[in-house]
Simulated scan of single mutants.
Amino acid sequence: MRILLIEDDEMIGQSLQKALKSHAVNWVKDTFAGEHTLNLETYDLILLDLGLPKRSGLEYLIQLREKGMSTPVLIITARDSIEDRVKGLDCGADDYLLKPFAIEELEARIRVLTRRKQDRTDPIISYGDASLNPATFTLSYQGKTERLSVKAFNIMQTLLENPGVIYSRGQLEEKIYGWNEEVESNAVEVHIHTIRRKFGANIILNVRGVGYTFPKARANI
């Protein structure tokens, strides 16, 4: 796998290049160098720090998605607030990993993103006025189309394929995390909040004390 690492910390950059030796890792230290590199070569994954010089990682991520680039982006950052995580996912990140992290966890997340990318040839999933496109990781709902992160997409796919079925948080966690991958606290809530911010609160209903569902009644809208 070809990975573009955009990280300004010398120690972290060198450590990741060494640790990810099973992959072809190209390391640059700012987003302008990353932009130049992406114009010359194709990558399977981008590892992106947020606190970068010259231009922030978040600003660069927004520009990438506005240009239509669908390469998976895994944010690696020390910014640990829910607001930062939601903002990163809203701006087009496929996953969000907090520093410091274990290399084993990073490798697991890379494997998950790789599997998701390989599965993007699946047919469009539709129900009522909602449809998911695995080729672009986009959700269309009531005339609006937005790109989702990998985990948000998997949550929506689970609910859309089984309308009316109520899934607990634990059941949804099983859908979005790989085997032996550590589950982050409130991850399901963060991704559902992201989807609702894009499409409105009613796209996913919360059955108090039970879980979440995509209402079956929407099939007749």
Score class of each variant (00 low, 15 high):
134 P>A: 13
209 G>P: 02
176 I>S: 03
125 I>K: 08
202 N>I: 12
6 I>V: 12
48 L>K: 06
209 G>S: 06
124 I>E: 13
47 L>K: 04
168 S>F: 05
122 D>Y: 13
33 A>K: 08
4 L>I: 08
87 K>I: 06
37 T>L: 14
183 V>P: 02
40 L>E: 12
177 Y>T: 14
108 A>E: 06
205 L>N: 14
64 L>K: 05
194 T>C: 11
166 I>M: 09
92 G>A: 07
23 H>E: 06
67 K>P: 00
108 A>G: 11
221 I>G: 09
213 T>I: 11
66 E>Y: 02
116 R>F: 13
168 S>G: 12
19 A>R: 04
181 E>N: 12
147 R>E: 07
180 N>M: 07
115 R>W: 14
148 L>M: 07
112 V>K: 04
50 L>M: 12
44 D>R: 11
190 V>N: 11
32 F>V: 10
86 V>L: 11
1 M>W: 05
176 I>V: 15
121 T>S: 14
9 D>K: 00
119 D>K: 12
162 N>C: 05
153 F>R: 08
169 R>H: 06
81 S>I: 06
142 Q>H: 10
155 I>D: 02
184 E>I: 15
72 P>V: 12
11 M>A: 00
67 K>R: 14
32 F>C: 01
92 G>Y: 04
95 D>W: 08
109 R>G: 02
41 E>H: 14
149 S>E: 07
214 F>L: 08
177 Y>P: 06
47 L>H: 01
7 E>G: 03
216 K>F: 05
43 Y>T: 04
106 L>S: 00
142 Q>N: 09
41 E>V: 12
203 I>P: 01
208 R>E: 01
125 I>V: 14
97 L>F: 07
